[in-house]
Amino acid sequence: MLTIMRREFNSYFSSPIGFIYLAVFYILSGFFFFSTTLIYDTADMSYLFSNLYSIIMFLIPILTMRLLSEEKKQKTDQLLITSPVSLFSLIMGKYLSALLVFSTGVAVTILYAIVLASFTPIEWAVFFGHLVGLFLLGMALIAIGMFLSALTESQVIAAVLGFAVMLLLMMIDPLAQYVNTPILSDFLSGLSFNTRYSSFTLGVFDFSNALFFISVAAVFIFFTIRVFEKRRWS
């Protein structure tokens, strides 16, 4: 698992993808840190984190698009699958490498907090609540992206599917409002990533929300393993 994770992590940075992802993330988060926090002379970073929600929604498909599609295309999956490594540790290795790159990006907010703390005392507990929320959101989204990447041989298709799903996730809230059937509406808003994530940005650590993201991640990792299993049998 660690072997696969290490190789995958290195390959993010032997191609431009890792650098582009990080650069775009740093620029955008830096911009929002400036425009929502610094410029208003406030120590409240919640606006930054709620803006990061839509940023990572669009960046994560880039991070995950080649994760498994490229293996299939280059036939390197043959090497991985025929080596004495279980399918679970193979997929987890891949997943963790993407999560690691994601975390490298997100970690920059700690720097922002330190910068802020040098001017004014900040509420570290709230800040780490934000950070955990963002990390959990990333966990769920990366699992979804990885699953989509397992479905196809083409990075482009994986990315487009990823964007489509992310867009859908962002539209769930307005959709829930339009639906008249209360059950369906409740169901949809229950699925809303935004609602669950924004409770983190409000400084509320609700365990059920954390569990929701972790469950989504687990379910999609499981699905990814099933995709590989199924491919062997068809």
Partner: peptide, 22 residues
């Protein structure tokens, strides 16, 4: 018992499974 079976196999598929960026 895939893990033990695979341990004793070295496999060269039709297309060598190479990571081109390594």
């Amino acid at each position: 018992d895939p893990v033990n079976a695979k341990k004793s196999i070295g496999y060269l598929p039709e297309l060598p499974p190479l990571y081109l960026d390594m």
